[in-house]
Simulated scan of single mutants.
Amino acid sequence: MTLGRGGLSLVILLAFALSSCQTEDKSPQPRFTSNSSGTKAAAAQDKSGGMEAAGAQDKRHFIEFRSRYALTYGHTYVVFGQMDKDGNMIDPEVAGLAPASIDAAPYVIGHFLPVPATTGQTDGDLEEEYRSASWRVILTDDEYNDVVAFIRKQQANSHFWQASVDNCNNWVGEIARHMGYKTPGIWLRPQQFITNLREMNTTDSTSHAA
């Protein structure tokens, strides 16, 4: 099969993107959980890595800042909803920014020009084998309602993905900043972005590692 000039250029760009963005992440990082002020949630860990708060309601709201592995440098996104007393998520929802197509071409083009975006769940987001880092924040009802309203507004206004500016780190960082958190630079690998985000807003002594 022969490729025209445009097809050959696309292959070259794809090869460049893949060769420069191969996964160089660390092994999966421990799960961390805190309350919205960045201090350890008063809880006891069960064997599955869940958390049971003394005297807490059976269901609590949370948002989890998360990264996952991918063939390239990975993806940053949030998971939010309710969890039971054992820390198991109940019908979680996923939000993040990514190219709308699963084809490689829009992803490669998006490193140079904006491409249509999706702001919902993408393949592998809720699979533990792909999770590379996470920071779960337990929220009050008011805190949860506020951040979900912000996410909905952000989803309605986000139409394009562009790797260097409108990328997944920046999109999730906007949510974190709305919650009053400090955020790292948006050009980090997703695992490092989530790790730095947690470290900037908690300390190892005040956040809970599963």
Rank of each mutant, 00 (worst) to 15 (best):
143 E>I: 01
164 S>K: 06
125 D>E: 05
143 E>V: 01
79 V>Q: 08
115 V>G: 09
81 G>W: 06
127 E>Y: 11
91 D>G: 04
142 D>T: 11
154 Q>I: 01
120 G>L: 13
73 Y>L: 14
102 I>L: 14
121 Q>W: 03
85 K>D: 11
95 A>L: 03
59 K>G: 10
155 Q>S: 08
171 W>D: 00
112 F>T: 03
65 F>M: 07
121 Q>M: 15
151 I>P: 04
79 V>S: 10
97 L>I: 09
176 A>I: 02
132 S>L: 12
162 Q>G: 00
178 H>T: 01
78 V>R: 00
137 V>T: 05
136 R>P: 00
107 Y>K: 09
127 E>A: 09
149 A>V: 00
160 F>P: 00
148 V>G: 05
72 T>N: 09
105 A>F: 13
164 S>I: 02
106 P>I: 07
111 H>T: 07
122 T>W: 09
96 G>Q: 00
160 F>E: 13
109 I>F: 09
103 D>Q: 14
68 R>P: 00
136 R>T: 15
120 G>P: 13
175 I>G: 00
130 Y>A: 07
68 R>D: 01
150 F>E: 02
149 A>M: 01
57 Q>E: 15
92 P>H: 09
70 A>H: 11
84 D>L: 13
177 R>S: 06
69 Y>K: 14
57 Q>V: 10
178 H>K: 07
60 R>C: 06
97 L>A: 07
138 I>A: 06
105 A>Y: 09
122 T>V: 14
57 Q>W: 03
71 L>D: 10
113 L>T: 06
148 V>P: 05
152 R>Y: 07
147 V>Y: 04
117 A>W: 12
179 M>R: 09
66 R>S: 12
62 F>H: 11
154 Q>D: 11
124 G>M: 05
171 W>Y: 14
94 V>E: 08
133 A>M: 03
169 N>H: 01
72 T>C: 08
123 D>T: 15
137 V>N: 05
168 C>K: 07
120 G>S: 14
167 N>V: 00
73 Y>C: 10
151 I>Q: 03
56 A>Y: 11
147 V>M: 07
133 A>G: 02
133 A>L: 03
136 R>C: 08
